[in-house]
Design a protein around this nucleic acid. Structure first.
Length: 202
DNA sequence: CTACCGATTGACT
DNA sequence: GTCAATCGGTAGA
């Protein structure tokens, strides 16, 4: 089954909308070692200048420059010596993005097990840094065009689009500022979601 | 140059 | 549930 690559227009929108709609889509990675990837089950929105938790809220630096670039490209950053993957949203110059926090492994599970050093499928890509390790994503993919449909891309999943997804909204994980904002989205009752699966009180 | 911090994880109580 | 590891990015001298 051929999965259709998500086009630039998908990302040319508010990051909240993009975060919600990335759930159920397929994140894929291909190297000489083979194809791997899975269904996105958890994502967070980071909202440009007015969001203190957004890396770009205090202007452009060498690190966050990709966030100011065109939508549909990757923003890869390091935190606590581990890599995390974002998809840049909104028009060029508006530094917003969606952090992809977890996938449910589907393709190339053996390859991901090898990269992660564990056989436990639930631990392969549950959390943004584990996800990057499983997919062999590092800073060389900062700025990568996710709409190119090779090496690292996101595709539609017809099966997931057929049925309505049960999406839960909560506060973002590890974010100390702007805790009132509920900008994390995940699939209800999915074992591959990281962190707390409690809804934030409204 | 040095000092501090963090969108995390894995180990441990 | 708690907590330390560990180092690139950033700000500041």
């Amino acid at each position: 089954m051929q999965l259709r690559v998500l086009a630039r227009e998908f990302y040319l929108r508010d990051p909240v909308m993009v975060a919600r709609e990335l759930l159920g889509r397929r994140l894929l990675r291909e190297t000489s070692a083979g194809l791997c990837g899975g269904t996105i089950v958890e994502a967070e929105a980071y909202l440009s200048a007015r969001d203190p938790a957004c890396h770009a809220s205090r202007g452009m630096t060498r690190r966050n420059a990709a966030m100011f670039g065109p939508p549909g490209h990757a923003y890869v950053y390091m935190i606590h010596h581990r890599w995390c993957l974002n998809a840049v949203t909104q028009p060029e110059g508006v530094p917003s993005a969606v952090l992809i926090r977890a996938i449910e492994p589907i393709e190339g599970i053996d390859l991901m097990q090898q990269r992660r050093g564990t056989d436990i499928i639930r631990d392969l890509a549950r959390g943004p840094a584990r996800l990057c390790e499983a997919l062999a994503v590092d800073r060389t993919y900062n700025g990568w065009d996710l709409t190119a449909g090779r090496e690292l891309w996101i595709a539609d999943d017809p099966e997931c689009n057929e049925r309505p997804l049960r999406i839960v909204r909560s506060a973002r994980i590890g974010v100390t500022s702007a805790h009132r904002r509920l900008l994390r989205f995940y699939l209800a009752d999915n074992r591959f979601v990281s962190g707390s699966t409690r809804r934030a009180a409204t």
